[in-house]
Design a binder for these strands. Sequence first.
DNA 1: ATATTAAATAGAAATTATTTTCATTTAGAC
DNA 2: GTCTAAATGAAAATAATTTCTATTTAATAT
Lengths: 135, 135
Amino acid sequence: MEQYLEKLKTSGLKLTPLRRAIIKLFIDSDTHMTPEDTWATVKTQFRQCGFPSIYRNLESLVECGILTRIQQFDNKKHYGLCNSKEDHHHHHIVCIKCGKVDAIHECAITDIKQIKGYQIVSHYMQVNGICEDCM
Amino acid sequence: MEQYLEKLKTSGLKLTPLRRAIIKLFIDSDTHMTPEDTWATVKTQFRQCGFPSIYRNLESLVECGILTRIQQFDNKKHYGLCNSKEDHHHHHIVCIKCGKVDAIHECAITDIKQIKGYQIVSHYMQVNGICEDCM
DNA sequence: ATATTAAATAGAAATTATTTTCATTTAGAC
DNA sequence: GTCTAAATGAAAATAATTTCTATTTAATAT
């Protein structure tokens, strides 16, 4: 938890009870979640927690590097905890069984200078796999 | 156009006027589009073209390899023409200026056997760049 | 401790995107 | 031409996300 609160502070975001609860939820659940998933759990502790706060916070927490966006092609946003210790470029692997997210530092693109006449600006990579617990 | 119609046939999908128009639109526009973009253009030719047909067809065309899903993190679906000649594993590069999509065959993951105890199942990679025309 | 202030919150309502349902039409095979 | 499963359009429903606004609160300086 400490490392995440540190990131919040660095980004100038306030440590509100809601934010703490969201972060704790991601740490405890160890899976990626949609805004609705998040809200469903958080509202058991904060009876009057609104959707907008969930949506805004999930995005804020991505901005400051605590969460990462996970792609699922199902019309919903998905977020996972970014457990990377380091700050620089990395990707994530997602367990297709339990939804667990892990930072990975393998990256092919850094070696590729030029692609068919394109100038590379950025890239997104998501690896899907099965984690040890789910094998 | 021929190569795409071939893919349709192989997948057992009927060649309807709407499908032909959608494919032609992607060929001509040379950019990725949301269902709404697609509908807006297609309806100039098919006055009574409904949303559901657009949504269904875009997904069908992804299934048979004519289109590919493009990730944009903006709550909309995005589709681009998949111009890969070959059938096997590949990724796409997207021009951040004009939206043009190209197949690329560079792939890092094929070299990586194991990631931190995960068994790799699949991966998605999207490279964003600037194409020659936009440089 | 207390006051201050910009940031964060909840709630309601609005907006936007997507899907379902179903009756009708049509492409492709015979 | 006939047939049949697939595809279509229209309306309505659903689901996801955002906007708006008044209120509250965390963090800072006093």
